[in-house]
Computed example of a mutant assay.
Amino acid sequence: MDPIIQFLQNQTLPADPAEARRVRYRSTRYLIINVALYKRGFSLPYLQCLTLEKGNYVLREIHEGICGNHSGACSLAQKAIRQGYFWPSLHTDAQAFTQKCDKC
Rank of each mutant, 00 (worst) to 15 (best):
N34H: 08
A18H: 11
S43E: 13
A20S: 12
V23D: 07
Q11N: 13
A18R: 15
A20D: 03
P45A: 15
V35Y: 08
T28S: 14
R29N: 06
R26W: 01
Q11A: 07
S43K: 09
L44C: 05
T28C: 13
G41C: 09
P14G: 12
Q11S: 12
A36Y: 12
P17G: 05
C49V: 01
A18I: 08
Y46W: 15
P45K: 11
P17R: 07
R26S: 09
L13F: 01
R29C: 00
R24Q: 11
L13R: 03
Q11C: 10
R21N: 09
A15T: 09
A18M: 10
I32Q: 14
C49I: 03
A36T: 07
E19C: 07
A15H: 11
V35I: 14
L47Q: 09
I33N: 02
L44R: 15
R21M: 07
V35Q: 13
R40Y: 14
P14V: 02
Y25T: 04
A15N: 10
R40C: 01
V23I: 09
R40I: 11
P45Q: 14
L31M: 14
P45E: 15
L31P: 04
R22G: 00
A18Y: 15
C49G: 06
Y30V: 01
L37D: 01
Q48L: 13
A36V: 05
L50G: 01
I33F: 01
N10A: 02
D16L: 08
V23M: 05
P45L: 11
Y30R: 04
A20N: 13
L47V: 00
G41I: 00
Q9V: 05
R26D: 04
L44S: 13
